[in-house]
Write a protein that binds this DNA or RNA. Structure first.
Length: 277
DNA sequence: CAAGTTACCTGACGGC
DNA sequence: TGCCGTCAGGTAACTT
């Protein structure tokens, strides 16, 4: 579920429910996530504190409190966040719950528990970018991620372009679905060595990454259920997949069957005709 | 150093 | 019906 567009949609959906609220209590079922859940720290540092800002960076959701305190949530493969009335029925795999001062609570659900929760207390004069995100590449939708930057970064790399696009240290937030879909739109073969793309091809690829991500955000990403208001409507971008999961089906452009291969251990889909180069 | 593999975890699905 | 292998939107720690 959660690549950049899904986290963006979740962030936008949560914002009106969270900003300005105070956390009253936190519950945790004790199950391990990918890294230890800082439950004691959260209870001492967040209880009674007000949420001042909610935003997304890469595939992370950032919940800012006053006093330089930031709750950082990563959804892994199956994580989800939702707003529910206090006391309403909980779901299987609800692991954490932050009770708010408006009779609602934020719940973290994660079947496979590949997600992670961090609590960061920024030292003065330090930014999130300099600390938690110091190894994280630029946002594909931001201006500091240019075709020039990517072209330079890829110099000498023999790694397949698709794997390169999924490297968070190079560019942040592109997962398996959007790497596949963006390469199809750009007409570039996922196996091409990253260092062999021309400046012009990088320009085309970046344009297509951006249009794919923006389109997915407009579509509401993939399905996100259980929000209590209209902002939680299900996403429908999966209806627009051109290659992801389409093995053997005819390409929408040329009818050639979509091929599935493994690249760096990840399923990769492409049209052998439209993505020859 | 770059690039590939494994581990983390649950559940859905297909074959037998 | 059930058992088993395979696969799944991510990432970090390994190995090669």
């Amino acid at each position: 579920m959660p690549e950049l567009p899904e986290v963006e949609v979740i962030s936008q959906g949560l914002k009106p429910h969270l900003v300005g609220r105070r956390v009253e209590a936190i519950t945790y079922n004790g199950k391990n996530l990918r890294s230890p859940v800082p439950i004691d720290l959260m209870r001492t540092q967040l209880t009674g504190k007000q949420i001042v800002k909610v935003e997304r960076r890469a595939k992370y959701l950032l919940v800012h409190f006053d006093l330089e305190t930031v709750l950082i949530i990563h959804l892994g493969m199956t994580g989800n966040l939702g707003i529910f009335p206090i006391g309403s029925t909980t779901a299987r795999h609800d692991h954490l719950c932050w009770r708010l001062d408006n009779n609602l609570e934020l719940r973290y659900n994660d079947t496979r528990r590949f997600g992670a929760i961090h609590l960061l207390q920024l030292p003065e004069n330090a930014s999130l970018e300099e600390t938690f995100f110091h190894k994280t590449g630029p946002e594909p939708l931001s201006e500091n991620c240019s075709a020039q930057y990517l072209h330079t970064k890829a110099t000498g790399r023999k790694q397949p372009i698709k794997t390169f696009l999924m490297n968070t240290e190079v560019i942040a937030g592109i997962g398996n679905i959007y790497a596949n879909e963006s390469l199809f739109k750009a007409g570039i073969n996922p196996c091409r060595p990253a260092g062999k793309l021309s400046r012009k091809e990088w320009r085309t690829l970046l344009d297509n990454i951006r249009s794919t991500l923006n389109w997915a955000i407009e579509c509401g990403g993939s399905t996100i259920s259980d929000f209590i208001n209209a902002s939680g409507e299900k996403g429908y971008f999966q209806a627009n997949f051109k290659v992801y999961g389409k093995t053997g089906l005819p390409c929408g452009n040329c009818l050639t069957p979509i091929k599935k291969i493994q690249l760096s251990g990840r399923a990769s889909f492409y049209c052998p005709q439209c993505q020859k180069k």
